[in-house]
């Protein structure tokens, strides 16, 4: 009824002009793209063409597979306005469970399926606590981080490691294509798919809307709870996938697997334009570029035999710069 009584001559809604090329320079990905270019330039000047040689990029790529997959999925949770701190432990748990099942002579596919199902189960606990009961996401997933670490350590037993070398899996994961690790290219493809989902599908737009303003999204008829549950499950799924790849790559699972990965991934994602404090900003391409920038920095310092502790200092400073930039771009000022 209210629609019928609304004035007929209401102004047409303002349509945001779609300028993909201009967005590339001014949009959220612009600053991280510049950062990556600067990192590459510094690498080329300081190290020389060797920095971009296939061998070197391949080494970086092999290290980046897990963070790329984990980051692309965890990005959905950030976009929907909930942060999932348990991803690092989830990677460790998934890696340990997968390795354990392999040593019990399970078929790798069955082992992977069971591992992913277990990760989704823990993701569901996160979702029940956060969405169902309204728990603070940071605190609840911190609890899950601790709990999963304990479960991982119990799985690994007193030795603290499971050796599960599987020749077929190792060959599969360490294949190369055009001189680059095949799975690195797969992970990049995964990121691109995630970016398309965010930008071009109804689910992606709903996730952004829920993160941007959940009350407005609810009034617009978007199932806010269901979207957040899906985002948290996706985040757990990505971490589970990452852990499986880890075990396949290394042929073992250890206590240190995934330890502290959540902070590295979120630091890189925030450098890449996501925000862990407000949803609705950032996209998978920016997140992947953030991971590339950090990997590039540590690779340069590695090749120059500079102490690795400088990496953390640079990551910390980049993180502060990134949040400052986010605030200038319209993020909430903290007072």
């Amino acid at each position: 009824m209210t629609d019928a009584t609304a004035p007929r001559n209401a102004p047409a809604p303002y349509i945001v002009p779609h300028r993909p090329w201009r967005d590339l320079l001014t949009g959220p990905v612009a600053s991280i793209a510049f950062t990556v270019i600067v990192v590459v330039a510094v690498g080329l000047i300081w190290i020389g063409p060797r920095f971009l040689a296939f061998g070197n990029v391949g080494i970086m790529g092999a290290f980046l597979i897990v963070p790329l997959v984990v980051g692309a999925c965890a990005g959905f949770a950030l976009l929907s306005g909930v942060v999932d701190l348990s991803i690092g432990s989830m990677v460790g748990f998934s890696s340990a469970l997968f390795a354990l099942l392999l040593t019990l002579a399970w078929n790798p596919w069955a082992a992977a399926a069971v591992t992913l199902a277990a990760c989704l189960g823990f993701g569901a606990i996160n979702a029940i606590a956060i969405v169902g009961f309204g728990a603070e996401a940071i605190a609840a997933t911190l609890g899950m981080l601790v709990a999963l670490r304990g479960i991982t350590w119990v799985l690994l037993g007193p030795q603290g490691a499971i050796f599960s070398f599987h020749p077929g899996l190792s060959d599969l994961v360490n294949q190369t294509l055009f001189g680059l690790p095949l799975f690195f290219l797969v992970a990049i493809g995964f990121t691109v798919i995630a970016a398309i989902v965010v930008a071009r599908t109804r689910f992606g737009r709903h996730v952004q809307a829920v993160g941007g303003d959940d009350k407005a999204a609810a009034r617009a008829g978007i199932p806010v709870k269901r979207i957040r549950v899906a985002a948290l499950l996706l985040s757990a799924f990505g971490a589970g996938l990452g852990g499986i790849v880890f075990t396949a790559q290394l042929g073992s699972a250890a206590r240190a697997t995934g330890f502290g990965l959540e902070f590295q991934v979120y630091a890189a994602l925030m450098i890449g334009g996501y925000s862990i404090l407000r949803g609705g900003v950032g996209n998978p391409i920016g997140g992947a570029l953030g991971l590339l920038a950090v990997a590039g920095v540590s690779n340069i310092l590695d090749l120059k035999a500079v102490s690795p502790y400088y990496v953390n200092i640079i990551v910390g400073l980049l993180l502060l710069a990134a949040v400052l930039l986010d605030r200038m771009r319209g993020g909430d000022a903290y007072e």
Partner: peptide, 25 residues
């Protein structure tokens, strides 16, 4: 084993925040 203590601490933390959120809501 002392490894299990993290499991209990984590689960207690999740339950506590879930309860806290439920009460606040």
């Amino acid at each position: 084993s002392s490894d299990t203590q993290s499991i209990f601490q984590g689960l207690i933390l999740i339950s506590a925040v879930a309860f806290d959120g439920y009460r606040a809501r």
